[in-house]
Design a protein around this nucleic acid. Structure first.
Length: 313
DNA sequence: CGCATTTGACCCGCGC
DNA sequence: GCGCGGGTCAAATGCG
């Protein structure tokens, strides 16, 4: 399992209200760069595509400072830090402070290394249904793990973020089906598991509430959408951004929920597309919560090259 | 009726 | 090897 890995992330996560972007009931924690006047964001999508993005360019594009990136802890693949484990349920809680090294960070993200794509849990979840089930009755299907040592866990790119929200399940433009719920150790709040309802799309997400700060919802996305969002969302990106920005760019690949701006997990930014393509995708942080609440373009322009903010004629 | 959610059981990896 | 905890499945149930 890799949750302790995320714990690492959680340990790093610190709510920083100073730079909190309030969008009504839902507050999105934003990450600020070293200089508070130029907070750095990235869209959710972008984060997930971070695998394809050169972080160097991003730094340039968004003014990400080295210090701002410090707060990201790599979850998968990289040297699991030395950090001590703070009680399992300690999500983004107080203790984070003792572990934080970057006072500016308000949110941390994490994702797996590039190239993990499919496979990860596929081997597990796609346990051949049926067919081999003769051997053991009903559940036998689950039994054929048939996973070999070598081809072990390749994990989907994952990305976690914290959102201050009263609702657990945030609208992000995609449709999700809940497929499970588990009690979280040391936390009174359960963790919910969702899967993208689009067939063939194996994106999953986990949603749980920080028990340290119940107003904070921790969402972890896993995988990348291989389809555009079912644009049925009334407040969705459609209203704010040109369609071109809402559709997955052929270059960068599948889109991801334009849910939030995210800090850059710099560990995973390597190769391919530059910052440009990133924003060609979904750049739509706020309005899904409040349609009328238009994002601060001034702010956006600070961080996004104006060409990406270009509005329809 | 079809789809989404709930929920208990199961699987699996990991630490002891 | 065993137990624990996280993740997933799938039948049952609920809802529009």
């Amino acid at each position: 399992m890799s949750d302790h890995e995320f714990r690492d992330f959680y340990d790093h996560a610190t709510v920083h209200n100073d730079h909190q972007q309030s969008v009504g009931e839902t507050d999105i924690y934003r990450v600020s760069s070293s200089s508070a006047d130029h907070p750095s964001y990235m869209s959710f999508t972008d984060c997930l595509h971070s695998n394809f993005v050169d972080y160097g360019s991003l730094e340039k594009a968004f003014g990400l400072s080295p210090s701002s990136s410090e707060m990201f802890s790599s979850v998968e693949g990289s040297n699991q830090t030395t950090k001590q484990k703070v009680g399992e349920g300690d999500l983004g809680g107080n203790n984070t402070s003792e572990l934080m090294t970057t006072p500016n960070s308000s949110i941390s993200s994490s994702s797996s290394d590039a190239g993990c794509e499919e496979d990860s849990d596929k081997s597990k979840k796609e346990r051949q249904p049926k067919e081999s089930s003769e051997d053991g009755g009903e559940r036998s299907k689950k039994g054929n793990k048939a996973k070999k040592k070598g081809e072990t866990k390749q994990k989907e790119p994952r990305f976690a973020f914290m959102t201050k929200s009263e609702v657990d399940h945030l609208e992000d433009g995609y449709r999700w089906r809940k497929y499970g719920q588990k009690a979280v150790k040391n936390s009174p709040y359960p963790r919910s598991y969702y899967r993208c309802t689009t067939q063939k799309c194996k994106v999953k997400k986990r949603v749980e509430r920080s028990f340290q700060d119940p107003s904070v919802v921790i969402t972890t996305y896993e995988g990348q959408h291989n389809h555009p969002p079912p644009t049925t969302l009334r407040g969705s990106a459609a209203g704010l951004f040109p369609p071109s920005m809402l559709t997955p760019s052929p270059l960068a690949g599948p889109g991801f929920p334009q849910e939030l701006f995210m800090p850059m997990p710099h560990h995973h930014m390597n190769n391919q597309a530059g910052a440009g393509s990133m924003f060609a995708e979904n750049f739509n942080p706020f309005q899904q919560y409040h349609h009328h609440q238009v994002p601060d373009y001034g702010l956006l322009q600070d961080m996004v090259p104006s060409r990406f903010l270009k509005q329809e004629p």
